[in-house]
Deep mutational scan, measured.
Amino acid sequence: IRKQWHEDITQDLRNHLVHKLVQAIFPTPDPAALKDRRMENLVAYARKVEGDMYESANNRAEYYHLLAEKIYKIQKELEEKRRT
């Protein structure tokens, strides 16, 4: 379902936000690492998460909020795993 606010969101912005999700899960300073085949699954997962939020959000603010919440949860989980 195409929503009115979707018209304001460019593909570049969506790609940028997918990249932010990927960085939250696997922070790497090396952009070449993103071309690694093992990263493809991670990028696919991040695209799916972003797509789900894009579809479920009712406006741009909610879209950003859902993504920020997801990134926060991912970082929290990773922190907890590092501690144990």
Score class of each variant (00 low, 15 high):
E77Y: 07
N41C: 08
E77V: 06
V43C: 07
A68F: 07
Y72K: 15
Y45C: 03
T28D: 13
I9A: 01
L34Q: 13
Y64H: 12
L67Y: 05
K35N: 12
Y54T: 03
A24D: 01
Q23F: 00
P31D: 12
D36P: 10
I25T: 03
R82T: 10
E62F: 00
D36I: 06
Y45S: 02
Q75V: 02
H16Y: 08
M53V: 09
N41R: 09
A44L: 08
K76V: 11
D30C: 05
V49W: 03
D30V: 08
K76F: 12
A33G: 12
A24Q: 04
A44I: 04
R83G: 13
K76C: 13
K35V: 12
T84N: 13
D52R: 06
E7H: 14
E55N: 10
R83F: 09
A24V: 06
R2D: 14
P27M: 07
T84G: 13
K70L: 03
M53K: 00
K70S: 05
V49Q: 07
T28P: 05
I25V: 08
K48S: 07
G51V: 07
I74H: 14
L42K: 03
L42N: 03
P29A: 15
L21T: 00
S56L: 09
K48I: 00
E55Y: 09
L67N: 01
E77R: 11
I9P: 01
V22P: 00
Y64F: 09
Y64S: 04
E62A: 02
Y54H: 04
R14V: 00
T28L: 09
H16C: 03
A68G: 14
L66G: 11
N15C: 01
A32R: 09
Y63A: 04
M53N: 06
L34F: 12
A32P: 10
K20H: 01
L34N: 12
Q75E: 14
H19P: 04
K48D: 05
V18Y: 00
L66V: 02
A44G: 05
E79H: 06
R2W: 05
L42C: 08
H16D: 13
R47H: 02
K81V: 09
H6N: 00
E50S: 03
E40C: 04
L42R: 04
I9D: 06
E79K: 05
L67I: 12
G51E: 13
A24Y: 05
Q4G: 12
N15G: 05
H65E: 14
D52Y: 01
A68Y: 14
I74P: 08
Y72N: 14
N58D: 08
R82S: 12
A61R: 11
T10P: 11
N59H: 00
A68N: 15
L13V: 14
F26V: 13
Y72F: 12
Y54W: 07
L34M: 14
I9S: 02
L66I: 02
R83L: 13
A44S: 10
Y45L: 06
L21E: 03
I74W: 09
